[in-house]
């Protein structure tokens, strides 16, 4: 369970995905690693060094890379396909549907630099990748929050019988969860209890949601935080159960508010007959922009700690003004919520 200190600075870990894949490949010789010309950026220089004969440069040709992975999976290999989220999903969408998802093949698509974590502008910002993947039958969709979750998710997705899309930040990854944390493909986790409202979140927004909840808690508003790393299939039971105990639900995701976690939660609330107010925080059905630093973009596009506080407070708080989140200064090697 993460610290209760608001605006905690979390230690970071380098390349947890790359290390987890090497560990999995050490135990499972059927693992193959495909790279779309982003090897170091996807942390799989580690795999390439450890298992050069199982590393395949597919080059800057994503459509072909997806089809190769499908054919290799048909033959009993376990292909992990690596590129940035935009190039893993929006570019080869038809190939994903026809060569992987429809035949329900165990291919793992790993999309790096989700949402606004890339300051590279709309071409590099995967803001609808979850929506695209969630709409495809047979696909499992996972968005992980920290190094612990990454380390557990990699072996967990290895044995999913069908395709999996895993989106994650690259490089320096915060360590939010302790060793007792258990990533589950079936269950969301309640990270904070609270009866006034619930924040349902995942991925890079978990740290910000925790900070927001902790700040509101010190101002008398008890806010639950639910981490739902598996967007599809969403844990309906936990989402509905928590929603029934609170006065409002806020979803917060590093993604468009259309089609992602917020939409998945909205579907659960409506179908389960949970009559509770919902607000979806995320990229508000717009394209973002190129910038120098990602934290600037998270603030500009409404995904900062303050934005979460404001949304929860307006739905479930008293009429007094919402508390103001302190501005953290993150030092090198540390990760602070935006």
């Amino acid at each position: 369970m993460p610290s209760a200190n608001p605006m905690t600075r979390y230690p970071t870990v380098l390349k947890p995905y790359g290390r987890a894949l090497v560990e999995l490949a050490t135990a499972r010789e059927e693992v193959l690693c495909l790279s779309g010309d982003l090897t170091r950026q996807c942390e799989i220089d580690l795999f390439q060094g450890a298992f050069p004969s199982r590393f395949i440069h597919a080059g800057m040709a994503e459509a072909n890379m997806i089809g190769l992975a499908g054919a290799l999976a048909r033959r009993g290999h376990m292909p992990f396909v690596h590129t940035f989220g935009v190039f893993a999903t929006r570019r080869p969408l038809d190939q994903i549907v026809n060569a992987i998802a429809y035949p329900n093949l165990p291919v793992r698509l790993i999309g790096f630099m989700p949402g606004l974590s890339s300051p590279g502008g709309p071409s590099h910002q995967a803001i609808e990748d979850v929506a695209l993947m969630r709409a495809i039958p047979n696909m499992t969709v996972v968005d992980v929050a920290d190094a612990t979750e990454i380390g557990q998710a990699v072996p967990a997705i290895a044995d999913v019988p069908g395709p999996v899309y895993l989106r994650l930040k690259r490089g320096e990854i915060p360590l939010l969860f302790g060793q007792t944390h258990r990533f589950s493909l079936d269950r969301a986790q309640i990270l904070r209890e609270g009866g006034a409202a619930a924040i349902v979140t995942n991925g890079m927004i978990v740290a910000s949601a925790l900070a927001a909840a902790d700040i509101m808690s010190t101002h008398g508003l008890a806010v639950a935080v639910v981490n739902a790393p598996v967007v599809k299939p969403i844990d309906r039971r936990t989402v509905a159960a928590v929603a029934r105990t609170v006065g409002a639900v806020v979803t917060a995701e590093n993604h468009s508010i259309v089609g992602g976690l917020g939409s998945a939660v909205a579907e659960v609330l409506a179908e389960e007959g949970v009559g509770v107010r919902l607000r979806r925080l995320g990229i508000q059905d717009t394209f973002a922009e190129g910038a120098r630093r990602a934290p600037f973009l998270f603030k500009k596009y409404g995904l900062g700690v303050q934005d979460i506080i404001d949304a929860v407070w307006s739905l479930a708080g008293p009429s007094t003004p919402p508390p103001i989140a302190p501005v953290p200064e993150s030092e090198r090697g540390e990760y602070a919520p935006v």
Partner: peptide, 10 residues
């Protein structure tokens, strides 16, 4: 052809 290349690679 991609799928065929995948089989041949396997």
């Amino acid at each position: 052809l991609t799928g065929a290349a995948g089989f041949a690679l396997s």
